[in-house]
């Protein structure tokens, strides 16, 4: 059974005539990392909000179709309790802080306070999360005084503290520098190891290629391509739909074109090339 399943979703924002999402169907399997990509305004964030139940609850507008979370219709969940099933984090590091806590330590505990976790358990969990996200040095700092990258890590940590099975990350690195971006991707890998299902919205396809299992490509509110990373990110059709291909893949595709050979199954990352060469060396 899929952990998330969207069936024939159509959605229009209030005050707008144009439909943002049309006949969108999708099934996500437990434990996989999904990279959701596509041009700006293609509907990526809207899909995230639909899965999390913020649409239509907070955004209003007209939504048709069916959203199933763990086999149960999303309407049967309370919007507050969904936080323990679906973690949600987005691009702006500043607005993701609760705004009511003056230390990183308490900021991370905030979600657990809201669902009434006992103090002892909370302390234990916060310490565990601090270690996992390497935030131990920052515990007494005011979250607002951190750098963008640190804020973003705290924000994701605070959501992960609620132990959700599904984590949605909507462009978590778009405002960050390369070093902080790498930190976030390291965390994504850790979360994957813990068996979380992750939906990651991202433009940086070179990184998606390295960290995802499957790619979902949206164009103008429709799911136009979906499949294993290898298959999708080596397909030039991605570009036609407003997406982009990893630099490494682009090179190998052009090379294949020049040689007149088939471009399927080209490597997508430098690491892959490196591994391949070294394997050859041994053989």
């Amino acid at each position: 059974m899929s952990i998330i399943s969207l069936k024939n979703i159509n959605y229009t924002y209030p005050l707008e005539e144009k439909q943002t999402i049309h006949s969108f169907s999708l099934d996500l399997e437990k434990g996989c990392v999904y990279g959701l990509t596509g041009a700006n305004e293609s509907g990526k964030t809207t899909i995230c909000n639909i899965i999390r139940g913020f649409i239509p609850e907070l955004y209003k507008g007209e939504l048709t179709g069916e959203v199933m979370i763990k086999g149960k219709n999303i309407n049967d969940y309370n919007i507050g309790d969904l936080a323990t099933i679906i973690g949600y984090s987005f691009q702006n590091p500043f607005t993701q802080l609760s705004g009511v806590k003056d230390t990183v330590y308490e900021e991370i505990a905030y979600g657990m306070e809201n669902i009434g976790v006992s103090r002892d358990k909370m302390i234990q969990k916060v310490n565990e999360i601090l270690k996992m996200f390497q935030l131990e040095d920052l515990i007494d700092k005011n979250p607002f005084e951190l750098s963008g990258g640190q804020k973003q890590r705290v924000a994701i940590a605070s959501v992960v503290a609620l132990d959700p099975e599904i984590i949605i990350l909507d462009e978590p690195t778009s405002q960050l520098d390369p070093k902080s971006t790498e930190d976030i991707f390291e965390i994504i890998q850790l979360l994957k190891k813990q068996g979380k299902t992750i939906l990651l919205v991202e433009h940086k396809v070179d990184l998606l290629a390295a960290y995802c299992d499957e790619i979902l490509l949206i164009s103008c509110g429709e799911l136009v391509m979906q499949g294993p990373v290898k298959e999708i990110l080596s397909d030039p059709k991605v570009v036609e739909y407003g997406g982009q291909l990893p630099q490494v893949a682009l090179y190998f595709i052009k090379k294949a074109e020049a040689n007149g050979s088939s471009a399927s199954q080209v490597p997508l990352t430098v690491q892959e090339v490196y591994d391949h060469l070294n394997k050859d060396g041994e053989a």
């Binding site: 909000n49 999390r52 913020f54 907070l58 309370n78 993701q96 609760s98 809201n114 009434g116 609620l162």
Partner: peptide
């Protein structure tokens, strides 16, 4: 955006709140 962030931290959960600060 903060509404989304707070809901993601179970702000509107019906549970009785606890506090890590004491």
């Amino acid at each position: 955006e903060r509404v989304l962030a707070l809901e993601s931290r179970a702000f509107s959960s019906k549970a009785k709140k606890t506090s890590i600060y004491e």
